[in-house]
Every structure is written in C-alpha cells, then in structure tokens.
Write a protein that binds this DNA or RNA. Sequence first.
DNA 1: CCGGGCCGTTGACGTAGATCAAAGCGCTTC
DNA 2: GAAGCGCTTTGATCTACGTCAACGGCCCGG
Lengths: 244, 244
Amino acid sequence: MATHITAGRGTRPLPDENPCVACEVREFAVCGALDPEELAQLSALMTQVMVEAQGTVLCEGDPATFLFNIVEGTIRVHKLLPDGRRQITGFLYPGDFLGLAVHDSYAYSAEAITDSRLCRFPRDDFYTLMRQMPRLEQRLLGMASNELIEAQDQILLLGRKTAQEKIASFFLMISRRAARRGQPENPIHLPMGRTDIADFLGLTTETVSRTFTQLKTSHVIRLLENSQVLLADQGALSSIAQGQ
Amino acid sequence: MATHITAGRGTRPLPDENPCVACEVREFAVCGALDPEELAQLSALMTQVMVEAQGTVLCEGDPATFLFNIVEGTIRVHKLLPDGRRQITGFLYPGDFLGLAVHDSYAYSAEAITDSRLCRFPRDDFYTLMRQMPRLEQRLLGMASNELIEAQDQILLLGRKTAQEKIASFFLMISRRAARRGQPENPIHLPMGRTDIADFLGLTTETVSRTFTQLKTSHVIRLLENSQVLLADQGALSSIAQGQ
DNA sequence: CCGGGCCGTTGACGTAGATCAAAGCGCTTC
DNA sequence: GAAGCGCTTTGATCTACGTCAACGGCCCGG
C-alpha cells in the first residue's frame, strides 16, 4: 500500500544551470506561468523521479506528501471498489499535473503506463511557495477548472453514451490532447491496453475490442502497427461521438 | 438559448450596511475566506437574483458573463446530447459556487429545482478582484479541488456501480452534504424528482423507482411524506454503496 | 365533487453490453 | 524454432437495465 517510486535515478544536484529553463513541457505545465527567478525557486524544491512502465506513482489512501508534474510518459489514474472493480478517472500526459488532494491523503492511485519521468514537489513546500506566487496559484486554478470541465464531459460520456459513442469520443479526446501538446493529431497513439481503455470508458475489454472492429469495418478508423490508430473519417467519428 | 433570469427582483442598493456581513451561508461559500473590508469590495459587485422553481439560471453555450453563489434553494447542473439525452452533473446547495468556465462560454446549463436566491457577480470584475485577493483565489482553488474529487467519485459511480450501489451512494452523498451545511443528516430531503435522480445517476426513472422500492422492502430506507427519506440502516446503505 | 395533468409505481418484454469460453497472435526465452 | 505467456479478437449465452405500457395517487381548477 506504500508508494513505490524508483526515486534517486534521474535526480541530479542542479549544476550551475537551472534544468527547468530548458524544459520542453514547461509551457504546458504549471511552471509555464513563472518568470526565471520564480522558476529557480520552484526548481529548488523539485526532484526528478523515474517510474518504469506499470510502476506505481502513488496510492489511494497514502498521505499526500508530494505533487507531480509529468515530463515524459503516460500515467493512468484510477479508483478501485473493494471487490476489485476499477475505474480509470484519467490518463495524464507530459505537462499534466498530479496530486491535488483536499484532505491529507490521495483519493486515487496513479501508475505509469510507459516508462515515465516526473517532477516531484513536497506538497507543503509547494503550497507555501504558491502563497507567494499569485501567478502559480492562478495557473493551478486554471488547470483545475479545465480538469473540472473535462470531468463533466466524462460524466456525460459514462452516464449517457453508448459503447460506440464512448469509443469515438475517446479517440477524439486523445487526438485533441495530442494536438494541444503540439503532436500530430491524426494517427493517434494508444500506449494503454484494451483493459485500460475499458476501465476508462465503463466497458469491458471485449466490448472495446468489438467496437474497434465495428469502426474498422465501417472504415471510420484503421489500426496501424505500434498501437497507432488512423482516424480515417473524422467527420463520421464526430457524429458518432455526439450520438449522430 | 438565452439566459432567463428573474433579475431585478431581490436586488437592492445596499443601504448603510453590507448585507454579506449577516449572510448565513458565508462560512460555506467563497466569501467565507474574506475579511470585512474585502467582503465589502466583493459585495459591491454583487447583485442578488431570484430564480423560481424550474427557471433557468444559465445555458450551455451562452457567454460566461456571470459567476454565482447559491444562497437559498437547490440548483441542478446538466449537459445535453443533441438528441436530448440529459446528464445531470451536479446538484448545488446553498454555499456552492456556479459558473467556472475555461473559455468564454458555459459548458453546462443550470436550472433551479426549488425557488432559489443567488448572488451574481460579473465574471471579469470578479476575476480582477480575485487577482488582488489571494485568499479569495486560494479559497476558490480549494473549492475547485473539492469538486474535482467529487467528480471523480461520480465517475467511479457512473462507470462501475450497479443501480443499487448508485442509489445507496446517492443517499449517502445527500446526507453527507446536508451535514456539511449544518443540517440534519438523517431524514434526508430530496427536492428533485425521480427523473432528475435518474439523469444524475445514469439510470431511468423506472429503475430509480424500482430500486427505491427494493431498498424500502429490505427496510434499508423508509419513504416519508414531503419527499423526505429516512435512512433506516446506514450501515447496510454504506455496504451496498461500496459493493458489499 | 368531478375531471385532467403530472408524477411515481408496477408489470411485461426487449436489448446492449456483460460474462464465459476459446482461439489467434505477437512477444520473449531458452 | 519450439514452448510459453500476455494481450487481443471472436463467438455463444446471459442478465441488468432500458423500453413500452398501464395504472394509481395527488393536486388543482372549475
């Protein structure tokens, strides 16, 4: 039940230069709001952490001692019911923020799907710094508002969409998010397995698989090698996602 | 598609005294974080608005010109699919905040379930003021984080729980929220109809009704007059909510 | 006191998606 | 290159919940 982090590796003592200055995902992340001086203060708190594929980043119920920023890799966040049913509440990509907690323990678990690199901040120190940096706080509020909107979309999807509509919406979401990070939006890449997709969409692996083949057969998508998916007919995909 | 607000009524020119000082829900709301002077500044922006039962507070797609605070009544927030399928994303009670938007238009609609009174703030002015009041911003971030946690619970519920588990979780949530507002937590009050509950839990009216009678028959709840529900066996309710 | 909506409840039946089961298809390992 | 393992796909069947339909209680106006 403890957090298992491959800490240490990737950690370095910040030489003469602040590593955050050259960070490729900074503009998408919380840190994007800061000036060089503020960035230096923040990076002083930061430890880089590597988590290998299928490794645990944090566990539901553990004391919320750290906040994270994803730099490289894909993370899945989930909640479990006592009997083992799992709901994935989100997939996180570089630039995304992880670790918001209201009480002092995490309300969800997070695991790496691919080998990942994260920036880790002690929660207390981060909040203390935030009080002194209104822009940081504003940025975080903006990101939280965004997540709230996305959560509501997911609630609509889970409560009212059919399997086809869920899968189509999922493809479009992945595509949109890739575009936001400045990556190709059309052949999308799905680093997660069918079971992860199922647990994200409130379906089973079998239904996900069957729906993939339906969309494949109707030439809306094409499955390429390396878990890439070509969205062959984005118009059709959009209409399906919205329920025709 | 426009917002229909029974504005004007209830609006008054703030006499010698600041009405917020005596506000009963202030401690639960964003305003609870402020000192008297800040409160005065905030209340200068504020207009009180009445919305009668079934009236619209705001519409999905409308420009997000206002933020709201619920003072009295119950509000439902929902999203629609083009063919009319509805998902209620939340019920709001006194003290709750409404109107967070990332882009410049609302991503959801909001309607009054009972006659309601709200504090309304012009969005731009509110954000300007927020920049000058770190405590206000902190409070809002705290509330947004809270909502995010609740949204994830709802995602788990919608994606992985059975009808019984959904209904049991719903009762407990309503009870918990009543307690937070300092109201009796046990005979709970359900101002919303069966259809609202169904659209909140991703079910149909019929299934909601049937599940109510199942729980009634197994003596876990009792339906009282005035849409009150007695949680007769909270232990049983909790186990059901978690999947035994 | 009577008639007509509007909810909520109950019943009969249908179906989308779950479950159970097995086969295909890369991987890695030796 | 054979064996083995994990993941995906496909098929057959089952079921929780949706759909369709009818009924009953309650309120409200005449």
